[in-house]
Computed example of a mutant assay.
Amino acid sequence: MSETLDTEILVLMRRVSEQIILPRYQNLASEEIIEKAADDLVTIADREAEEALQVGLAAYDPNVVIVGEEAAHADPSVLNALSGDCWIIDPIDGTHNFAHGHAPFGILLARASGGLCQSGWIYDCLSGRFCAAHCGAGASVNGEKFLARTTGENPPVAAISALFLDDEERAMVHTHITPHYRLVDIPRCAAEQYPRLGLGENDISTFKRTLPWDHAAGVLWLNEAGGCAQRLDGSAYRVEDNSDGCKKPGLVGASSPKIWEEYAARALANPV
């Protein structure tokens, strides 16, 4: 059942990518890029891709409510569906990159029930890499079963995001966290950041804002692959949590449970 669903979802994501997203890559007019909020962009491709994904998912199962990033921005009441059975859509994850004409960017889809992600899919529009996961059934990359691996480096490799941190939080991270890791840039794209944690490229990624369309699929995929993604207090990520993005304890993803525990111990020993 899950393999059939993965195939159907892949066909949908690939079609939307090839017909709507990629034709506008490095080909957007200035009026086709809109700033929803400070440093938060949306493009005509985001909106058209979300509409196409909604149509495809509705045809697959018309009884399940759809929560799309752009629909929720236009009407926040859409978020009320996150506690029930729903599809979650991020039509272009990494819009900032896409709008500026560079990689990475991708599509994120998830199926959630009761506040927890049950299935998730991550599609890289440029490479075609397809990551899938189902709760209790493991993770895959391009149709092959997959287990997460660490970078093997000492110190571990960390992409620590300062986005949305206040000055006190930045100071704590700089003093007590970053000296223990080799730092790399964040890709500003969860559709890239979560795979990096499983593919032996990064060991730690941190997130302050944890909106469901950005994280539902990636959290499930990493956990099912044997890595670890959860709230800094050790609680599970729930898609209906803090829909404004920043009130709950931060979300940390790691290439292994051990590396996650080491990071959390450092952060909790130095609370802000």
Rank of each mutant, 00 (worst) to 15 (best):
D90R: 10
D167S: 13
D124F: 05
H174L: 08
L199W: 13
G200H: 13
P156V: 00
D93V: 00
H176C: 08
P155K: 06
E169N: 07
S140N: 08
A148Q: 02
D167Y: 09
R129T: 03
R149I: 04
S119W: 02
S119P: 02
I122M: 10
G138L: 04
F105D: 04
L197G: 01
A158V: 02
G143D: 08
H102F: 14
I186N: 14
I122W: 02
P179L: 06
A159K: 09
G94E: 07
A191E: 06
L126G: 05
D185G: 12
C189W: 07
H96Q: 09
R182Q: 14
S140R: 15
I160Q: 08
A171N: 13
T175G: 01
L199K: 13
H174D: 13
L165G: 04
I122A: 00
V184A: 06
H96D: 00
Y194M: 09
A103G: 10
R149V: 08
D93N: 13
A133T: 02
G94R: 11
T150I: 00
P187D: 11
S127N: 13
G198H: 04
F105C: 05
A110P: 05
N154P: 03
L165W: 10
R188F: 09
D93L: 03
A171I: 01
F164P: 07
F98M: 05
E153N: 14
V173L: 13
E168L: 11
A162C: 01
H102Q: 09
I122N: 04
L165S: 10
R182P: 05
F164N: 14
G101V: 02
I160G: 02
T95K: 09
L116E: 14
G94N: 11
I92C: 11
D167L: 11
P155N: 06
N154S: 14
P155H: 07
R111P: 01
R129S: 12
P155M: 04
H100Y: 05
Y123F: 15
G94S: 07
R111S: 08
D124C: 06
E144C: 02
E192R: 15
S161E: 06
R170V: 08
C117S: 10
A158N: 06
C131L: 10
G200D: 11
R129A: 13
A191Y: 04
R196I: 00
T150C: 12
S119R: 15
P179T: 03
G101Q: 11
A190K: 03
T178F: 01
T95V: 00
A112V: 03
R188N: 13
H100L: 03
L126D: 05
Q193F: 09
N154L: 07
G114K: 07
L109I: 10
A158H: 06
C117Y: 00
N142I: 00
C189K: 11
G106P: 13
T150G: 05
Y123Q: 01
G198T: 04
I177P: 08
Q193C: 05
G143Q: 11
C125A: 12
V173Y: 14
L109K: 07
N142T: 01
L116V: 08
D90Q: 10
L199H: 14
P104D: 03
A137K: 15
I177S: 11
L197T: 02
